[in-house]
Design a protein around this nucleic acid. Sequence first.
DNA 1: TGAATATGCGGGAACGTTCCCGCAGTAAAA
DNA 2: TTTTACTGCGGGAACGTTCCCGCATATTCA
Lengths: 336, 336
Amino acid sequence: MGITILEIAKKTGYSKSTVHRALTSSSRIDEKTRQEILRIANKYKYEPNLQARCLCGAKTKILGVIIPDVGNSFYAKALKGIDELAEREGYNVLMFTSHMSEKKEELIVRKLQNHGVEGLLISSMAGGLELVSALKNAGIPYVGFHQTNMSDIDFVHSGLEIGAFKITDYLISLGHRRIGHVTIDQPVDLGIAQKLEGYKRALEKNGIPFDETLIMSRSKFYGFNTGYEATKELLKLRNPPTAVFVLCDRIAVGAVKAIKASGLRIPMDISVAGYDNEPFSEVIDPPLTTVSSSAYEIGKSAAELLIENIENTNTKKRQLVIEPVLVIRDSCRKIG
Amino acid sequence: MGITILEIAKKTGYSKSTVHRALTSSSRIDEKTRQEILRIANKYKYEPNLQARCLCGAKTKILGVIIPDVGNSFYAKALKGIDELAEREGYNVLMFTSHMSEKKEELIVRKLQNHGVEGLLISSMAGGLELVSALKNAGIPYVGFHQTNMSDIDFVHSGLEIGAFKITDYLISLGHRRIGHVTIDQPVDLGIAQKLEGYKRALEKNGIPFDETLIMSRSKFYGFNTGYEATKELLKLRNPPTAVFVLCDRIAVGAVKAIKASGLRIPMDISVAGYDNEPFSEVIDPPLTTVSSSAYEIGKSAAELLIENIENTNTKKRQLVIEPVLVIRDSCRKIG
DNA sequence: TGAATATGCGGGAACGTTCCCGCAGTAAAA
DNA sequence: TTTTACTGCGGGAACGTTCCCGCATATTCA
């Protein structure tokens, strides 16, 4: 639709080569002719055809992003971070949703090449090593973000283990010794195991023995009910916990309901902590103490790393952690 | 990187034309040779090079989406709907975020052509008519969704006016006659005016005179505070409303706080209704009566329309409304 | 003054595909 | 039998760009 390099050549009387040189600000061209050509190019709003360009080996300026689900606010925010940085650096974002399936991921890699994607951001890796090696074979730079347990690739970690450690350590600092952990059964989601690790490490650091009966899960779904059922169960224990660290705020809402339904008060009788700092966590009763990892920052940093890898082939492997921060509100209280 | 059509031709002994025919399942090819070629193609995992393909006028299978902000849950969900339908139909999604700025939108249109985007989904139109005519000139099909006041283009409407009408009508049906409306000053956002229209229409239908003093806005930002301030003001009126319809759930949370701070009870003393059915609306105290428009459905329908327009050039202009539904919870009550 | 070098520019090839035209060979219709 | 149509296939051109090579002319050096 737009004007082509050849048409500009016709209009200016130069050859396509010279026009190309003027446009790419390369050397070996007279400054006067460059200005002349540039004037015409701007007049007709020349824009290079990306398809043609990358057909002869040039750059597409497209970044691929694999996320499990855009509907999830975490990934949406991360995508925002990615998008903003990409835009700043002149890249565009092509989105692929995997829904945590290996098959999809393999198919995606195939597609990547066809779209001339220059680099890939991967948030979840159901495909794991196979996906990574496929990427390596294709020669596409990639960086992981959020969840991953691979140590030999670039990634930006959301520090789930650290966040879980922090909040558990905080509960302990308030005097709690019996801290329940409400979680779910979902082996694909690496974050769940990471949070459990952080929980355990905090106990260990403070010399509290790990008690398996305090780890409770009643389903494999993220949802209010999941938290409700598991917490009910936790409260039935002979020696119930004085505080509960819940996998995420969403599930924590169910936990809060269960506790209220049992006639207990938060935080007077029992403390509750969540994870994610969802928009609603601030407005529920009581406002929830939780952990916030900036999805936006994670996405942005991951994009930053990726673009560096693309433009600067020989960078060392780097692993970043966007430190999660404690958001202290009113749902936890000093014991005794 | 992958194998090309020409290499398959070499391997099978046929010409590139025949290979192409086999691959595109066109006619005028012997079924036996097709199978033979297909076998080789699959063996070497042939994938057509999209750049080359669309350079000679073929389809890129890329859909562009312009949204103001992915961080916003509504747009994220709409994007999900778009993405899922696009995937089903073999399309990919290239995302552009406009941040509600005209300049960006113009630049985006330029980019679209270079990326060979086949169609465009537009959620906000700061650029308005100019953007649309630029699109028309470029020959790119497009459909608007969510907010738009243009009648001569395809769009999927989220029915903001209808939703506002429904909730206001519902409040009236509960016996309320003085219904406040908490809103914000943001002329770029068309949805605000649409909701006000729906509010007015419901009053009119029920023979209630419109009272300007009941329309209250104290800022131009979406946020808790906005709702808090405006509602405080509303409660100070000589003849305060018995019910408040708030622009969105987010702001409604502020309204709820303001009412509680004034010592009034919801819904016993005053009813509150929101809009959007945010995840937190269900868990606040009291659970908020609100309106839900399925962003997912809107995105999906818009993508559906667009793909039809792309593949089926001469379709009539269509305008869909995804009917918003009332979500009745505990924040509104019969008066008296 | 002659040779080497630098500058400014043009032309051809290539990227991988699609579309169009043409050409045999065979089958159907006259 | 001749004409017509159809089938199966090959080859050339085109899409718009980039890269490489080469050719004049101007400049520098011995």
